[in-house]
Design a protein around this nucleic acid. Structure first.
Lengths: 218, 218
DNA sequence: TCAAAAGTGTTGCATTTACACCCATGA
DNA sequence: TCATGGGTGTAAATGCAACACTTTTGA
């Protein structure tokens, strides 16, 4: 009998693909949740911080590092895991949609992206985690620059707007959006234009800082 | 050798007294931090959620329950506690200034309130926790009704304004403050007036809900 | 020349800020 | 009647929301 709960982390990895907000899930293969899906994650060994553990699990499944990773909340209900009392520190990561080679963790059967609106049945209390993570993501999108972590280095304002619209799940006014983004001073116009299709080329922009910041008025 | 870190909670209890924001601290009596001060808290046994543990430690030191208690952040640096790896889930509680009988926990030498601006030397990473808690408190004060937990059931608008000014550490305009508070519809004017001193009596108000809510526009 | 996406300003409305005097009471 | 804190309104500035047409390109 343990005298303290076990400690674990779960990483809720979001990306935007094909104008859909998607979340990364692994398929469990051991009872009682065999066949169900869950967030990547696992136990935190003695001596490792939860940040480091979350970064490690993120890397093991996606091969990415240096993306936005934020602690979300700690879930500690003693019955959240039927195996025993596991306190899980949940993290949210935002990764961009570039092709990445997913790796199936040993203890899982599969790994894949799912639209957040239509996820498969989730194990543990992961449905609750997902809901909370979405809420926080939408909330923080409005007053921080964290969207940088979902986009490639260079992007057009229309692409940026699509990402906002996808996550917030509502249309935004083009002129107001551009005015706002540019006036915040967090973007940097490059001299390059992107020419695709039979229409006017779009200017490429970059984030001035690819590191999380609260948006201040200029 | 443990395979998982220990789990603990720390409770950062704030109150407002004599126009000062104060925090509850206990004095440690065991090395290596003997004599230093820390937040009430302790380990989380197997089978107890961190919320329940935080509520318990709050009750053991202050005798209060049913106050605003919110999870703040989980601190997990393996070297934050020299005794070994302890993951601490920090909570913030807000209690009102009414006389309460503090109880010294067995493993401590003393317990007392300190102004947040001039705390004694803090053990562990508690200085960092305090800073973060203050930030969150100030932030949430602006868009939630959590201040209810710092006030008695009935209070005057001037008392309410003093609490805001104390926590935000800046003066607020009396007319704008009252207009804002009343227009938000979270207050309820009682028919009672308070008569103290040689001046016009002040009306007493109550919170419509003594439960945390995000402030919505009416 | 047509289709398709990029790009651009102005106006009205709502919210926030700044600011000064009268009121009710007890001593 | 004086000192003390309670209580009230208006005007200016700022920020946010709504809204439509011109530009550039490739086919």
């Amino acid at each position: 009998m343990l005298t303290t709960p076990k400690v674990a982390v779960d990483v809720i990895v979001f990306t935007v693909r094909e104008e859909t907000l998607q979340v990364l899930l692994v398929q469990l293969k051991t009872p009682p949740y065999a066949g169900l899906w869950a967030f990547p994650g696992g136990s935190v060994p003695h001596g490792e911080s939860t940040e480091v553990a979350a970064t490690r699990y993120l890397f093991e499944t996606t091969g990415v590092k240096d993306v936005y990773l934020e602690q979300l909340y700690t879930f500690s209900n003693p019955r959240r895991d039927p195996h025993g009392h596991v306190v899980s520190v949940a993290y949210v990561a935002l990764v961009n949609r570039a092709r990445m080679s997913l790796r199936v963790p040993g203890k899982c059967d599969n790994i894949d992206w799912f639209p957040v609106t239509t996820p498969p049945t989730l194990a543990y209390d992961h449905a609750e985690m997902l809901e909370y993570a979405l809420q926080r993501l939408r909330w923080k999108l409005e007053y921080t620059n964290i969207v940088y972590s979902l986009l490639p280095r260079d992007f057009t304002l229309t692409e940026l707007q699509r990402v906002y619209e996808t996550i917030l799940d509502r249309p935004l006014d083009k002129r107001n959006f551009r005015k706002k983004m540019l006036s915040l001073g967090m973007l940097h116009a490059t001299p390059r234009m992107v020419k695709v299709g039979a229409h006017r080329p779009a200017r490429l922009y970059r984030f001035r800082h690819r590191t999380p910041m609260i948006i201040e008025v200029l």
